[in-house]
Amino acid sequence: MYQLSDYRFDLPDELIARHPEKNRTDSRLLHLERTTGARHHRHFSDLSGLLNKGDLLVVNNTSVIPARLIGHKESGGKVEVLILDYREGMAAMDREGTFSCRCLLKASKRVKPDTPIRFGEHFSAVVESFDQGIYRLRFECDGDFDRQLEAHGNMPLPPYIKRDADAFDKKTYQTVYAKNRGAVAAPTAGLHFTDELMETLKAKGVDIAELTLHVGYGTFEPVRVDDIRDHAIHTEWYEVSEETAHAVNTAKAQGRRVVAVGTTSVRTLEFASKEDGTLTSGAGPCDIFIYPGYRFKCVDAMVTNFHTPESTLLMLVSAFAGRDTIFTAYEEAVSQKYRFFSYGDAMFIG
């Protein structure tokens, strides 16, 4: 249960979804009953039939920025830049008037400090420092930074998708309820929702609350220790409003289900909840690592995608439904040729 090898499984390469479904709700949905382990094969459009009047659906409203930039040094050498902390950069802009933050760089050789990188005629950056694989860049542009970023940046698709982002990804790799800019990876369980489905759920009497967790690139970082209990998880910025805390606490007090959309919502709800299950409002760094043995305080059901082998996300869903139950469901999903990972199909566990 605590060995990294316990979370390894084989997945045929053709089951890794590299493009989304044409219609978001056309994705398949594996309904896993948390208590019995029973499995039912559906489509995401069937979700409204699995939610009850009075359920509280909690979504992550973070918005993915086009964080991947292609630039060139003065020598002509190509440099690929991935912005790691948009929120940090905006804070620097407020203080100093310049967007400056930590970034990952990919080039033929290490890029030295003070090296200028040009992305466009009016958009560039200068390397300020390098430490333990992370660079700090100071960006320079004419006019609004966000406008330049939108014009020159690409969506930061996960490495396993193995293709360059295109113009369509700026829409499809974003939830329909995204509003708070800052993520460099999408809360992918939310990608299946449409405005029409959200309205259908509201009409049924399902309440909806929002929180924010700015998903970081650390979500793709592999676990490098044999005993998962020794793993140091990445930190991401979260925000829970007083309104959302009140909605969750009222639902819990009335015996209604709290249904989290995605592991990011699960982590935020559990991190911000007291031992008695009371959700507190606030904002700050979230570093909760949920693996089997964890006692859930707030979340009663969840919508989630299928996760990569040996990932902390797979450990989280194993904690929620049981490792053996999850792996049995995954084996069935593979045999039924479900599509996996960010642009893949979904599960409803409840």
Results as ranks from 00 to 15, higher is better:
H72Q: 15
P285F: 10
K53P: 04
D85E: 06
T308L: 15
L50W: 02
T188M: 05
G71A: 12
P309G: 12
I208N: 08
V215P: 01
R257S: 04
A17N: 07
T278D: 00
R229I: 12
V248Y: 07
E140Y: 13
R8L: 14
Y343V: 05
D55W: 08
S100G: 00
D10W: 12
F327T: 03
D144I: 04
R68K: 15
A245Q: 03
K297M: 10
E140R: 14
Y338W: 02
V126W: 11
G284V: 01
H246C: 09
H41K: 01
F119M: 06
A189L: 00
N180E: 15
F119E: 06
R267M: 01
T62M: 09
H72M: 15
R34K: 15
S318L: 09
D345L: 11
H40D: 12
Y330I: 04
L57S: 03
Y294C: 08
D85S: 13
G153T: 15
N154H: 15
E150V: 00
A346Q: 05
R110W: 08
F296G: 09
T35G: 01
A245E: 04
R18L: 04
L105V: 07
D13L: 14
F168M: 13
G282Q: 04
R102D: 13
A165T: 09
D94Q: 15
E128I: 07
Y238W: 01
G182M: 09
G255Y: 04
F139W: 02
L137S: 07
L201W: 03
K297R: 15
I70T: 12
G153F: 01
F220A: 07
S5N: 12
G89A: 04
E121A: 15
G262M: 08
V317E: 08
A125C: 05
S129M: 07
V266S: 02
R163H: 04
I16Y: 09
A38I: 07
V240C: 01
K170I: 02
Q148W: 01
L15W: 04
P222V: 12
I290W: 12
T278Y: 11
E196T: 10
M315Q: 09
A178W: 05
G120L: 10
A301V: 02
Y238G: 12
T194M: 08
D94A: 14
G120A: 14
A67L: 02
E242H: 08
A107Q: 08
T212H: 04
G322C: 05
K252F: 11
T250N: 06
G255N: 06
R229M: 10
S281V: 06
S311Q: 14
S45P: 03
H192A: 09
A165M: 07
D300Q: 08
K73N: 00
A247D: 05
L191T: 01
L30T: 07
G322W: 13
R323V: 02
I70R: 09
T244L: 00
A319N: 04
T250G: 00
F123Q: 09
L4E: 08
L105Y: 09
H214Y: 09
F44H: 01
T308R: 13
A251G: 03
R147L: 15
R95F: 01
F123I: 06
A321G: 12
G277E: 09
M198V: 06
G120T: 03
G76S: 12
D324R: 11
G255T: 00
G37S: 08
T212M: 11
K274F: 06
S265F: 12
H40R: 15
S241G: 02
A203E: 08
F145Y: 00
I134R: 11
T194F: 02
